[in-house]
Design a protein around this nucleic acid. Structure first.
Length: 525
RNA sequence: GGGCCCGUAGCUCAGCGGUAGAGCAUCUGACUUUUAAUCAGAGGGUCGAUGGUUCGAUCCCAUCCGGGCUCACCA
């Protein structure tokens, strides 16, 4: 499939938020007479593994990036920046080798040994996780390590600039600090040459010309070092601003909890002589009751949970929707969002112009939505799973029965859903199953049915199986109340009060397999 | 309390100056030698409240109400 083309008028008329963001970015670049490659950035803190928020930020930033590219045709890059020179402030719980890690408190995360022993450092381990995580979704990005930026000298000029503009920066930062911090605050944090820890100490002397600072080391000695080459790092807010300045970041969004940080960092980057990136503050997720999601409470849901029951595309849709509203992230939204995703995909080919590029599917698929949609909804599969169980092959059989005219592509889309439906079955339906013990009459009737099905064998018509089921019931005293016969089958064989129509089910599941299913149920104690 | 963001049908969301929309849920009907599913249709909103701008406001402005985040340290 080839990407469609859109006219300038279409794009100007597009109202989806990524286009609004792209317009903001474009205005900023015009104001600056910036005509180079446009840099998008997302941040990552490697003191923990990547999570659903990490996904959201990269997905949303990519949506703005693609909208911007369509709008301007300009070259762009997406930097995934890992703040891995940050000192380890506390030992994250639930990690192995706690006592070993405790000895590395305050040291840059890239110098903390990997508690799992597989990478150069704790940060390297998590950085690798981040990359594997982003790669799994096919994001286009460039990984950048803070430590490498400092060590390679890439940030040297920025550090010197911080020294040059020291007074202006302090004027911005000091009012935002508590009394105690005011006394010791420094935008530049030296790494102790003796202990390797990140030091939160005041600068005793600074020489912008030489690019040097004097500070008191942990052992009490006065030490003079060059700011560059990885000897020092910038402290938050200034660090963020310095990063924008040094890397030329044009666009970065952030969670609303960082609203104040963005404000300050914007002022700082200006003081450094740069221009704040465009961007906005997206809202954090809340749980079903609208409460803040916290790891300790364990409310909300994780990315692993989402991807267990629904596709990454559906999660992208969730991220696309309303980034400025506090979205409720709880289990029920998963199937709903998955079905909404497919509805949008279905709509796309019917739409044109601005309407098409406002379609979430365009943004989720970076301009290339798939052509085929699923012929059955996920909601329907979840219902079906209640009736016929969670075997993907059986589900696929039912899909083909329900949608005999579906194309191969459509079936492929639907088949992918059976995997999620099967997991849903295993986790939510199967545990609730209650198999009833048969009465003697029921036992006899079911045994007869199993024998009949075996006799007919696979490959007969649905009706043959259905008739056999009816006849067996009638022959065992159910001619007046066939409903009870079916209820007995479902309760004893399927472990639930409702089940599939027996004819079609037997056809799809296989007559011999169905007979075995019945016999197994009779053997159950 | 200050700042920022959000508030459209039961739920999830779209619409953002010109007589309120979708999906799900609900209800009704059709259909299948059980149920579910499927199909057709219906009901459901003073667009958080109040003022203002306008010929006209869900959409712009102001105020208020409700919710979230933030305003020590750390990121």
């Amino acid at each position: 499939m080839t990407a469609r083309t859109y006219s300038a008028d279409d794009i100007a008329a597009a109202k989806a938020w990524p286009f609004e963001e792209a317009r903001k970015l474009d205005a900023r670049l015009k104001r600056m007479n910036h005509d180079g490659v446009v840099i998008f950035e997302t941040g990552y803190g490697p003191s923990g593994p990547p999570h659903i928020g990490t996904f959201g930020e990269v997905a949303r930033t990519t949506m703005v990036r693609r909208a911007f590219e369509l709008m301007t045709g300009r070259k762009t890059r997406l930097i995934s920046f890992s703040d891995d020179m940050d000192g380890m402030r506390k030992v994250p719980p639930h990690l192995p080798n706690q006592e070993m890690l405790a000895r590395y408190l305050q040291k840059p995360l890239t110098t903390v040994p990997d508690p799992w022993g597989s990478h150069d450092s704790f940060a390297h381990h998590n950085n690798a996780k981040l990359r594997a995580f982003l790669d799994q979704f096919g994001f286009d990005y460039e990984f950048v390590s803070s430590t490498e930026c400092y060590k390679s000298g890439l940030f040297d000029q920025t550090l010197v600039r911080v020294l040059e503009r020291y007074d202006a920066l302090m004027e911005i930062m000091l009012p935002s600090l508590g009394d105690e911090r005011k006394e010791t605050y420094s935008p530049i944090l030296p790494i102790s040459p003796t202990t390797g820890r990140v030091l939160y100490v005041p600068l005793l002397e600074r020489d912008a010309k030489k690019g040097e600072i004097l500070f008191e080391d942990e052992d009490g000695s006065k030490v003079k070092i060059a700011v560059g080459g990885g000897n020092t790092k910038l402290q938050w807010k200034v660090d963020w601003a310095g990063r924008w300045f040094a890397l030329g970041v044009d666009y970065e969004m952030a969670g609303e909890d960082l609203t104040e940080s963005v404000r300050l960092s914007n002022r700082i980057v200006k003081a450094l002589g740069g221009e704040p990136p465009a961007g906005f503050n997206y809202q954090l997720f809340v749980d079903e009751e609208g409460k803040k999601i916290s790891k300790t409470k364990g409310n909300g849901i994780s990315i692993e949970q989402w991807l267990t029951y629904a596709s990454p595309e559906s999660l992208s849709l969730f991220m696309f929707q309303n980034p400025k509203a506090a979205k409720k992230l709880y289990f029920d939204v998963i199937p709903k969002t998955l079905d909404e995703y497919w509805r949008h995909v279905e709509e796309y080919p019917k739409q044109a112009g601005a309407k098409a590029i406002d379609n979430p599917a365009w943004h989720i698929h970076e301009g290339n939505p798939p052509e085929a949609t699923t012929p059955v909804s996920f909601a329907m599969l979840l219902t079906l799973v209640n009736a016929v169980g969670g075997e993907p092959e059986v589900l696929k059989g039912f899909i083909r029965k329900y949608r005999p005219t579906a194309s191969a592509e459509e079936l492929r889309a639907a088949d992918a859903l059976t995997l999620y439906a099967a997991r849903y079955y295993k986790d939510f339906v199967e545990p609730k199953k209650q198999y009833r013990q048969p009465t003697d009459e029921e036992r006899a009737a079911l045994a007869t049915l199993a024998a009949r099905l075996r006799e007919i064998g696979d490959g007969a018509e649905e009706d043959a199986y259905h008739t056999a089921t009816f006849d067996t019931g009638k022959a065992h005293g159910y001619e007046k109340n066939l409903r009870d016969w079916f209820a007995a089958i479902y309760e004893i064989v399927f472990g639930q009060t409702e089940g599939p129509r027996m004819g079609p089910f037997t056809k799809i599941y296989g007559a011999v397999a169905t007979a075995t299913l019945i016999e197994d149920a009779l053997a159950r104690r």
